[in-house]
Simulated assay, not measured.
Amino acid sequence: MRSVVLFCWVLGVSCMGTPGGKINGVSFVGSREPAHQQHVDALRQVHAGHAAVMPFGFIREKDSPEIIFDTDRQWYGETCEGARQYIELLQGNGIKVMLKPQLWIWRGLFTGDLEMPSEAQWQELESEYADFILTYAELARETGVSLFCIGTELETFVRARPAFWGQLIREVRARYGGKITYAANWDEYGKVPFWDQLDLIGIDAYFPLSESRHPTVAELRDGWQRWKQEIRTLQQQVGKPVLFTEYGYRSMDYTAKKPWLVDRNQEQVNLGAQANAKEAIFEEFWNEEWFAGGFVWKWFIDHPKAGGAGDNRFTPQNKPAQEVIRQYYQRY
């Protein structure tokens, strides 16, 4: 598999799949255990051709520069060893991989608010983050993944230290020959200063679309129009394809009002609203030539135990939204 991917790089061929195809991806959540063939079989059944593998680094507070990663206290799938095992298993099944190392601030604080109180601490964070990302850039090179993501939803860090990010991109490219992106939050992507240095404009697409309890597909498509035009304008300015590095909706009432919510609210389960939101995003974007595709948030490796009719979380597994994904991924 690695030789095939490297051959694509040499020829300058896009690793976005077959001509006219899309990145039909899922965010393959790290587990306590290694992944096995049955965990990949479920991806193949929904025609997923790509998967994001997401090792994690941990930060204690939003003003702390230390990044803890690749330790025996983490879940297996969040470490270098686990990420490698997942990548090789996925690739062995013909599924291309985006390696997407991410930060987690304890208690689930938003990574976009990561901000250091002094210049010395900013410099320490830069050193820590470079070590974190370049460790995984080396893994991306060794495994020949199709795509590497240099960060996820780090708005304040990006805004405060633009020179660092330019240097980091150069160092990643010195180690890894594939395509690179950054996963900007839905309200951040227009302010990222380095899109012209990357291969794809990456957006975590949690745009508010509707305040209805059970929005229809037509209502959701209408809600997309403002955002779609803004995305298209940036895409034309930068001249790079757009990738939804994450996209998804919870299976609950008002799912498109604040799609980014990850709290533990007990909002009423609404499987139909989630399915409608998936259909709307496919209908609006998947037939656009400038749109590369996206990665569903999120997909747990133990498929039989994931999601289900009583679950109001993001995963589409064992819900009507899964069938919507299967149909559209098969089509594209």
Score class of each variant (00 low, 15 high):
79 T>K: 07
94 G>F: 04
63 D>R: 09
80 C>D: 03
88 E>N: 13
57 G>L: 11
64 S>I: 00
77 G>S: 08
65 P>I: 03
74 Q>L: 13
77 G>D: 09
59 I>K: 13
73 R>V: 03
67 I>N: 03
96 K>G: 08
84 R>H: 01
67 I>M: 02
69 F>P: 05
66 E>F: 09
64 S>F: 10
77 G>L: 09
67 I>R: 03
67 I>K: 06
88 E>A: 04
96 K>D: 12
88 E>F: 00
83 A>E: 01
94 G>K: 06
64 S>T: 11
94 G>I: 02
92 G>P: 07
80 C>H: 12
62 K>L: 12
80 C>G: 13
58 F>Q: 12
75 W>D: 13
69 F>A: 11
84 R>V: 11
66 E>D: 15
62 K>G: 00
66 E>K: 15
71 T>V: 10
61 E>N: 13
83 A>I: 07
93 N>R: 05
69 F>V: 08
78 E>H: 15
96 K>T: 08
93 N>E: 07
97 V>A: 02
80 C>L: 15
83 A>M: 08
77 G>H: 10
64 S>K: 05
92 G>K: 06
64 S>P: 00
95 I>C: 04
60 R>V: 02
96 K>P: 00
74 Q>C: 07
81 E>S: 14
86 Y>M: 11
68 I>K: 14
97 V>Y: 00
68 I>D: 14
65 P>K: 08
61 E>D: 15
85 Q>L: 00
60 R>Q: 14
88 E>I: 00
89 L>T: 02
56 F>Q: 14
86 Y>D: 10
85 Q>S: 13
82 G>C: 06
91 Q>L: 05
64 S>C: 11
71 T>P: 06
70 D>H: 07
64 S>L: 00
56 F>K: 14
73 R>N: 11
58 F>T: 12
71 T>Y: 09
58 F>C: 08
60 R>W: 04
92 G>T: 04
77 G>M: 12
59 I>D: 06
78 E>Y: 15
91 Q>T: 04
68 I>C: 13
93 N>A: 06
81 E>M: 10
68 I>Q: 13
64 S>E: 12
67 I>C: 04
66 E>P: 00
81 E>G: 08
